[in-house]
Amino acid sequence: MAAGGDHGSPDSYRSPLASRYASPEMCFVFSDRYKFRTWRQLWLWLAEAEQTLGLPITDEQIQEMKSNLENIDFKMAAEEEKRLRHDVMAHVHTFGHCCPKAAGIIHLGATSCYVGDNTDLIILRNALDLLLPKLARVISRLADFAKERASLPTLGFTHFQPAQLTTVGKRCCLWIQDLCMDLQNLKRVRDDLRFRGVKGTTGTQASFLQLFEGDDHKVEQLDKMVTEKAGFKRAFIITGQTYTRKVDIEVLSVLASLGASVHKICTDIRLLANLKEMEEPFEKQQIGSSAMPYKRNPMRSERCCSLARHLMTLVMDPLQTASVQWFERTLDDSANRRICLAEAFLTADTILNTLQNISEGLVVYPKVIERRIRQELPFMATENIIMAMVKAGGSRQDCHEKIRVLSQQAASVVKQEGGDNDLIERIQVDAYFSPIHSQLDHLLDPSSFTGRASQQVQRFLEEEVYPLLKPYESVMKVKAELCL
């Protein structure tokens, strides 16, 4: 049975990233139509530049190519590739079939990587351009969430054990800070992308030097003109047959890092959902379990974690691919890159769409948070109580021993009897502590235990987050809708 299948058929496997999760716009960027249309555009740009620099290419040939950029006979191309065992030459023939007058000058002087690699770089750039505003929107939604809850005390956790208090907004800023680093890295790697350009079979530009009869300047002009037509500021000066596969490492490393950030955020949300302090959106008709109707599973956060793990592992592909590119190139890269580049971007696209949807509907339960604080705060307040007693004339050592005994009794009630923490009640009825009984409410005010959390939130948002989001103001209103 021949390899390949009808990918629109229910009898043929289709990647869930495309069929179930990723956005239509990201799927289109990695589609065959987008790819092969870009090949034709690159052939047109090459012909236009070659004509401008004096090669015998007519206006009629150029116009014929322009008129057929979208006229792609995919069936013919597939048949040609089956016959020739070469995808680029299959599309040269297919393009030439609908451009008979231009057929002889299509791909003039070029090698397969002229269309293959340059198209990949265009796709990487455009895919990054799709991700950047999506990530900015996630940051914006979380920034709104953090600002609104900047002063809401909550129990902090280290080692997932109760620690000092923080605020809900401050905790959210930990998430935002990681995503801001990801946004900066995505922008950097996007701006650092260079075009492969017009380089020939081993990167020496020998074929173009021959076409222009040894004119170095025209060869350099050709490279520059096509690079500018493709919208790049610069091209690699040095290439082998391909652009260095280190570029793929750079791009997928940034995406993998984004995956790590999203995994951490969504894990926190899942843990908070278990504590009943916070939940992701839950639709009115949504079913959490087929057997347990009360369940409210954090399905979206779980999906993000599941896909983020996949995204983090994909960076190993370009690392290994770059390491086995012998001399000017081997074909070890080809099949692998067809999979890992598309999957990385479709996965990143999915987790950003999902995280935006989550961040637009996060639900906080202040009463649950308050109750958990009441359970733990008495123990945390013991040092403040000791200091207040010393100020009232008591002995630190005597007070410490009193607190120690009462704390152990209260802990026994919590752990052995399943009761509430009654340390404060014990202190309130103990005559030894009568000098500070009137101060206990103040000493137990949760806001006095959150330090500068709310001020940190305000400063972080104003100095770091809002300036970073400013270039994306025009796209901030787009909502994230999930079908599944």
Rank of each mutant, 00 (worst) to 15 (best):
1 M>I: 02
2 A>N: 15
4 G>A: 15
5 G>H: 07
5 G>C: 09
6 D>E: 14
7 H>E: 10
7 H>M: 15
9 S>E: 11
9 S>A: 11
13 Y>H: 08
14 R>A: 12
16 P>S: 15
20 R>M: 00
21 Y>W: 15
23 S>G: 11
23 S>H: 13
25 E>P: 10
26 M>E: 01
26 M>L: 08
28 F>H: 10
30 F>I: 07
32 D>C: 10
34 Y>Q: 05
35 K>F: 05
35 K>M: 11
44 L>D: 04
46 L>G: 02
47 A>I: 01
55 L>I: 12
55 L>Q: 14
56 P>E: 11
59 D>V: 09
60 E>T: 10
66 K>T: 11
67 S>F: 08
68 N>Q: 15
70 E>H: 12
71 N>I: 09
77 A>K: 05
79 E>F: 14
82 K>C: 12
83 R>F: 13
88 V>L: 08
88 V>I: 15
91 H>Y: 06
97 H>P: 04
97 H>I: 14
98 C>L: 11
99 C>M: 11
105 I>E: 06
107 H>A: 04
109 G>S: 03
115 V>P: 15
119 T>R: 02
120 D>N: 07
121 L>F: 02
123 I>K: 06
124 L>Q: 07
131 L>C: 12
135 L>H: 08
137 R>A: 15
142 L>T: 13
144 D>F: 14
145 F>P: 03
154 T>K: 02
154 T>W: 10
154 T>R: 00
156 G>V: 01
158 T>M: 01
158 T>P: 00
161 Q>P: 00
162 P>A: 05
163 A>V: 02
169 G>R: 01
170 K>F: 08
171 R>H: 05
174 L>W: 11
175 W>S: 05
175 W>H: 08
176 I>T: 08
179 L>S: 06
181 M>C: 11
181 M>I: 14
183 L>C: 10
195 F>A: 06
197 G>Q: 01
197 G>V: 01
202 T>Y: 00
206 A>H: 10
208 F>W: 05
210 Q>F: 01
211 L>K: 02
213 E>H: 14
214 G>Y: 11
214 G>P: 09
215 D>S: 14
216 D>E: 09
217 H>P: 10
218 K>R: 13
219 V>D: 00
219 V>S: 06
223 D>R: 01
224 K>C: 10
227 T>M: 07
227 T>Q: 09
227 T>S: 11
229 K>W: 03
230 A>W: 03
231 G>S: 09
233 K>P: 14
237 I>D: 04
238 I>L: 06
241 Q>C: 02
246 K>E: 02
250 E>W: 08
251 V>S: 08
251 V>L: 15
253 S>Y: 09
254 V>H: 14
255 L>H: 10
260 A>G: 11
261 S>M: 02
267 T>W: 00
274 N>R: 03
278 M>I: 13
280 E>L: 00
281 P>A: 15
284 K>N: 13
285 Q>A: 08
287 I>K: 01
288 G>Q: 02
290 S>P: 00
290 S>L: 02
292 M>W: 01
295 K>V: 01
296 R>N: 07
299 M>S: 12
301 S>E: 06
301 S>F: 02
302 E>M: 05
305 C>F: 03
305 C>N: 07
305 C>Q: 04
306 S>F: 01
306 S>G: 07
314 L>E: 06
315 V>A: 06
320 Q>C: 09
321 T>P: 03
322 A>L: 14
322 A>V: 14
323 S>Y: 03
330 T>L: 02
335 A>G: 13
338 R>G: 02
339 I>W: 01
341 L>R: 08
342 A>G: 12
346 L>E: 08
347 T>H: 07
348 A>F: 03
349 D>W: 04
350 T>S: 14
352 L>R: 03
352 L>Q: 07
354 T>S: 15
355 L>K: 04
358 I>A: 15
359 S>N: 10
360 E>W: 01
364 V>H: 05
366 P>S: 06
370 E>F: 13
373 I>Y: 04
375 Q>M: 09
382 T>C: 09
384 N>V: 09
393 G>A: 06
396 R>I: 04
398 D>K: 15
398 D>R: 12
399 C>E: 05
400 H>I: 05
404 R>S: 11
404 R>L: 09
406 L>E: 04
409 Q>R: 12
409 Q>M: 10
410 A>S: 09
410 A>R: 04
410 A>H: 04
414 V>Q: 04
415 K>A: 09
417 E>K: 10
421 N>A: 13
424 I>F: 09
427 I>P: 03
429 V>R: 13
430 D>G: 06
430 D>C: 09
430 D>S: 13
433 F>L: 06
436 I>K: 03
436 I>E: 04
437 H>N: 07
441 D>F: 15
442 H>R: 10
443 L>M: 08
447 S>W: 13
448 S>R: 14
449 F>K: 10
450 T>C: 12
451 G>F: 02
451 G>C: 01
455 Q>T: 13
455 Q>R: 12
457 V>Q: 02
458 Q>N: 09
464 E>S: 07
465 V>G: 03
466 Y>L: 14
467 P>H: 05
467 P>M: 11
474 S>L: 15
479 K>E: 15
480 A>W: 15
481 E>T: 14
481 E>V: 11
484 L>P: 06
